[in-house]
Design a binder for these strands. Sequence first.
DNA 1: TAGTGGTCTAGACCACACG
DNA 2: GTGTGGTCTAGACCACTAT
Lengths: 242, 242
Amino acid sequence: MNTNIFLQIYHDYSERIQSGEIAAGTKLPSENDLTREYGISRETVRKALQLLSENGFIHKIKGKGSFALDIGRMNFPLSGLVSFKEMSERIGRKSQTIVYKTEHIPIPHAVARHLETDKHATVWQVIRARNIEGEKVILDKDYFRSDIVPLLTTEIASGSIYAYLEQELNLQISYAKKVISVEDATTEDYELLDLKEYTHVVVVRNYVHLEDTTLFQYTESRHRLDKFQFVDFARRSPGEEK
Amino acid sequence: MNTNIFLQIYHDYSERIQSGEIAAGTKLPSENDLTREYGISRETVRKALQLLSENGFIHKIKGKGSFALDIGRMNFPLSGLVSFKEMSERIGRKSQTIVYKTEHIPIPHAVARHLETDKHATVWQVIRARNIEGEKVILDKDYFRSDIVPLLTTEIASGSIYAYLEQELNLQISYAKKVISVEDATTEDYELLDLKEYTHVVVVRNYVHLEDTTLFQYTESRHRLDKFQFVDFARRSPGEEK
DNA sequence: TAGTGGTCTAGACCACACG
DNA sequence: GTGTGGTCTAGACCACTAT
């Protein structure tokens, strides 16, 4: 549906690199070659390559060319943070979702600070556990501003809330800030998770913004220590000093 | 020294937004305005704005304009991961570095797996602790391929190794992969850190690549649980599906 | 309708790598 | 030298937001 040329080229090559069809280290056609091959201008080719580069699929070397990186093997960087849950699913492990709560409530004190709404606002609270390989190891506590998300059901919460937000409500998620830290496990953590002997949890706070920059969702993801992992791929950007 | 126009505009605006001179929510001049103002083409203006957008300084809305985001207050996203140490330094806290070891050794078994060198290679090993507010809370274990980094001294290790690599050795760091997890504290951790009662540490494994894609450095950063924090700013990129 | 950002073109010159 | 990627230009058309 998206007819953007540079996105098509991006998807073309990202899939071929991720599937291994294009092996790591392989040299890609030059920008001029691609320009001729696709019958488009060079700047458009460069836009596609830049996306591939940002997301860790290729690496460009001035004077030499563009080369496929070794995604796919065990290293799936794929732009930014990748959680344990996503990693598990990529390896083919299924995660089950247990919905504990889906309710419309006045915003809790502790959450108001994060969501930056006024204190009389109401939110949809969703509390879910992720069951991976038979153990509940992640507790997700989501809070949505109810002036933006008017309705949530347990059914939606057990599937993909994001698909619902984007496709049904037509909300455009735009950017997010994550803060990762380690904290004492709460009694709630002990009740709702299979915490075993662990006394701490990794807490990932996620602040999600819409296209118009409004902060509409706050999520607290609480992971059992041994089942926590994050992978980050970072490229040195031109803007960086030193 | 870098005469790139788009970088100049990027630095111009990134500084003015970070300093607060341009308040969050303020509308920036339109691309056409900037084109006239700087006397350059629009694509160049857009390149600068795209960098600002990627790094969390601004947000662009089609049909409306570009708007400054609220960096600066307490939220300093600033592109990718930001560690507790960097955060502390930005708030003005000083961190001291204690160098335990700087030695040229055959590559340890456990490290060879990460550095992907042959087993007979030698590496420079640097072991340092970071002292923040009177406590040793981070243990950094660095390994550099000695065919690329021929010499390291304790003096270099107590300053900025990266400045040395880039300015003295002229090495170009290009991209890196980080893997974050939580593991049992080792006896070494107990010896070299002020671990208090904590039985686990956050381990950040960092794989650093050069311009020519060779993996030349592996670092294990071991953080005391309560002094660990990472912040990540992520923008929804065009390449992402669903 | 006018203004905004998003995409794309067809050129140009440069700095770097390699034989 | 030739070929590569990096920067930049001066246009063009589109989709979206406002009024």
